[in-house]
Design a protein around this nucleic acid. Structure first.
Lengths: 249, 249
DNA sequence: CGACTCTTTGATCCTGATCAACACCGGTGG
DNA sequence: CCACCGGTGTTGATCAGGATCAAAGAGTCG
């Protein structure tokens, strides 16, 4: 599942002009077109499919010129900042929207397993935004969300809470793609999960084992089957009490 | 040093109309007038001195109407949010600037030890801001700083680093008031410091003890004497490496 | 002086990191 | 076909930081 770290982004098989016709498997979950919203269909005209990338290949790296936005067409991706994983990207999710004025990417984005991307050229998207307020607003909203997610820290609560919260989040996001399914693929390494959640890979394994022992999920080679979703969601016993810090006064 | 938690803000001895003549001991460190900047002298005409508050008395609490800004005239104060200390306020420092549109205070502010405040009525300050761009800009800058400080988390590094960083910060801020002085008063409880730094009071005591054992400071009943300031500042061995999380890929 | 709170200090416990050993798996080359 | 190999996942042992609990000083204020 892993590759030697590629020193530079490997030139993938670009498919310019392969505009989207809305027939891809995740069309209804596509964030770029908001699941096929008629107001946003113009976006389909500018998208290019790019791939395949294999595990570890970098799509962009810090300093590389920002010439487009991306979404996952199939597979998975991660964004890393200073060697720390700050986001995972599932099929349909749009990312690499940097601040509007940004000329270069600020973080690395790399494939997890064999992955195809959709690329939305920045110039074409800018033109679309100028012509279509809906697209502009939609993109701005997604950009704000990305900014929020990249800033969010996952250092709250203990290791078990963080792992189960992470799985719950993944499961919720997958629902948009696959609908109801107990299976949640985890193609990223335990190390990656640990980096994202701020714990060691060994602890990730142990917390998964604890959730398995509790009958909440079963562990497969390529992911997990969630059998008791209700137990994954962080249970907040009494409202307004966060035991992440010591109490005072 | 401590009081039973007062359920409601105790009405202090208000001194309306006691405009500032710049003769107070911390005039040169007064943030409201930027140390007596001629462009900001108008502020002195609207300030009122209020006090004395004794230890634990609340100046404002969440939900109380926002009718003024405050600074410490003498003593010290703390801002608490959900029972956590999020800021300490030293003489001369302006605070309780909430967002411009805020109608009510969002956090508690209470006195630490016997404390006098300067109160800057909101309406009068608004008028001043309308008449004087310097005052408006100055207030906006201070408001941004307050927002940043209240959001900042002190959960980076280990306990010793956080305590010494805290003391270093206090010492730097006191320099504006007292000039060069080895003494740094700590009128707040160890519990308060621990709440602010995200650790237990016992750990605060232990870390202080460790700094004392290292010859960096001596401990007094009401504070500390810093004898080796250079050792207080967080030493970053190699730039760009933060061992606060595990590393990846 | 006495009650009270705060600080200090010791003992213990818990969480999660770290390290090491081992199983597993896919790929590679004989 | 099979031995080998590097990377990954799992699991156990150990360790360190800091929380928690308890008990003993030390002020402090009435």
């Amino acid at each position: 599942m892993s590759h030697a770290l590629s020193a530079a982004p490997r030139p993938p098989a670009w498919r310019p002009g392969s505009a989207c016709n809305g027939s891809c498997r995740h069309a209804s979950a596509c964030e770029a077109t908001r699941g096929g919203d008629p107001a946003l269909l113009g976006v389909r005209g500018v998208v290019e499919r790019v791939g395949p990338f294999s595990d570890g290949d970098r799509l962009v790296q810090p300093g590389s010129p920002h010439r487009g936005y991306f979404s996952v067409l199939s597979g998975m991706a991660k964004t890393t900042d200073a060697n720390r994983v700050v986001a995972f990207h599932l099929p349909g999710e749009l990312f690499a929207l940097e601040p509007t004025r940004a000329q270069v990417h600020e973080r690395s984005i790399s494939a997890i397993g064999k992955t195809w991307f959709c690329r939305f050229p920045r110039d074409a998207m800018s033109d679309l935004c100028g012509d279509n307020d809906d697209i502009a607003r939609h993109l701005a909203a997604l950009r704000r969300r990305e900014h929020r997610l990249l800033k969010a820290s996952h250092d709250d609560g203990d290791a078990l809470t963080r792992v189960s919260g992470f799985l719950f989040d993944l499961r919720c996001r997958r629902r948009h793609i696959e609908g109801e399914s107990a299976f949640v693929p985890l193609p990223m390494s335990r190390e990656d999960i640990g980096s994202y959640l701020g714990m060691s890979a060994a602890t990730v394994t142990r917390m998964l084992g604890r959730l398995r022992a509790a009958g909440i999920l079963t562990i497969r080679a390529d992911g997990i089957d969630v059998s008791d979703e209700a137990s994954l969601v962080p249970r907040q016993d009494s409202p307004g009490s966060k035991p992440s810090r010591s109490f005072i006064s």
